[in-house]
Design a protein around this nucleic acid. Sequence first.
DNA 1: TGCGGTTCACAAAGTTCA
DNA 2: TGAACTTTGTGAACCGCA
Lengths: 117, 117
Amino acid sequence: MPEGEEKICAVCGDRATGYHFHVMTCEGCKGFFRRSISKGVCFTCPFTRNCTITKAKRRQCQACRLQKCLAVGMRKDSKVPPGRALGWAGASAVQGSRLARHRAGLVPCSGSWLAGP
Amino acid sequence: MPEGEEKICAVCGDRATGYHFHVMTCEGCKGFFRRSISKGVCFTCPFTRNCTITKAKRRQCQACRLQKCLAVGMRKDSKVPPGRALGWAGASAVQGSRLARHRAGLVPCSGSWLAGP
DNA sequence: TGCGGTTCACAAAGTTCA
DNA sequence: TGAACTTTGTGAACCGCA
Ligand SMILES: [Zn+2]
Ligand SMILES: [Zn+2]
Ligand SMILES: [Zn+2]
Ligand SMILES: [Zn+2]
């Protein structure tokens, strides 16, 4: 990370505190991502899965917040670099149950709130 | 919460206990709003739909109290700032039945006690 | 020294009962 | 109806290991 580089959370735009799960994020998104992934929860967006995530609104839609976390590349370090770079379809190449992959931050939860391409 | 913000209920002026349904309100208006919305009730103002809502009088007209709740922005979570900012007409863009929108705190109940502009 | 994990006080939603 | 209470998620501050 080049010095003097802005420390801005890639998820919500709040002040970031460093790299967390491979992405520059704030303490809030760091904790949110860890809690979400470790519990294997599935959130549901009450709208159209395109809520804007800002510091002020990040608590209002967990589904879109988690979606954004994954979209910017957050993942548990566990194993193979995700197929995410190839789109969600690529992630299915990774071994393990879907839930296991979900917990590793490789895939969103089973299709309910994020349609793969 | 903005620092030094007054802890006054935006609906009735009583002492507020924090943000409830996105608005700084007292325990009474918090409970009243949840009960009203979750049950999808329709109140009718016995007067001209412009009753003043104060701590002392808030119990006297449920229709106007609920109208005031909506006017100051109270809404069930999981609902983005509705079309309310655009007037009631804008809310009709929100998907779902009118009752669903009503229960989400997006629209008043069907025209009986609040005439849209 | 940076980052994952833990702790814990706090905010807000729901519940109870006089 | 609403004061008091329970429940759940949040995030700032820590802690400890590379
Ligand atoms: Zn963030
Ligand atoms: Zn959303
Ligand atoms: Zn009030
Ligand atoms: Zn009235």
